[in-house]
């Protein structure tokens, strides 16, 4: 009897592990930055590189940082959703233009519309690395205390915005007041 139970039991356990593995998202890495202060950056603006922008200017209110690049196909995919989120106007969207070329980035915003209050230009990618970026698009929510409360890796959708971002923004606003 035992000689049947043991192999079948082992097989069932293996199937169980594999089945759990099927349903798990192995692409999204947990960010060690969640719950930590957002890294401060100062970068030339995409619309006017003679001017600098720092996210220090947004301290005291929640904002979203979206990492994008004109080379990034998935950013093209999420662009319409970002435009709609910008129109809703709950929080300002800050763009981090990662590993891009200035004329291409400018043309992108002109052709597709600009959902960002401002985009920082990060051609060398050091600011992106400070934010733990490993592939665009990535979208971070920073609360009024300057803490990263959420990170979403994938093209943004209105559904994700309503499900994941809005409740956290409301929470952050309640704490900030």
């Amino acid at each position: 009897m035992l000689r049947f139970i043991i192999p079948i039991g082992l097989f069932a356990a293996l199937v169980g592990f594999l089945f759990i593995g099927l349903g798990r998202d192995k692409q999204t890495l947990p960010s060690p930055l969640i719950g930590k202060p957002a890294p401060i950056f100062e970068l030339p603006r995409v619309d006017d590189p003679t001017q600098k922008f720092s996210n220090r200017e947004l301290a005291g209110r929640p904002y979203v940082v979206n990492i994008w690049g004109s080379w990034c196909v998935a950013c093209r995919e999420e662009h319409e959703a970002l435009m709609q989120i910008a129109r809703r106007g709950e929080v300002p969207l800050v763009g981090l233009n990662w590993k891009d070329e200035l004329p291409l980035a400018q043309r992108w915003l002109q052709a597709l519309g600009n959902p960002y209050v401002v985009s920082g230009f990060d051609p060398e990618g050091n600011v992106g690395i400070d934010w733990g970026a490993y592939g665009a698009p990535e979208t971070f929510l920073v609360d009024a205390q300057g803490i990263i409360v959420y990170k979403y890796v994938s093209p943004m959708t209105l559904d994700v915005w309503q499900r994941e971002f809005l409740p956290r923004i409301e929470q952050s606003g309640a704490k900030g007041e």
């Binding site: 890495l29 947990p30 960010s31 060690p32 930055l33 690395i129 400070d130 934010w131 733990g132 490993y134």
Partner: peptide, 8 residues
Amino acid sequence: MVDRYGDY
């Protein structure tokens, strides 16, 4: 590197 990307 760990500060930015975790132990992974």
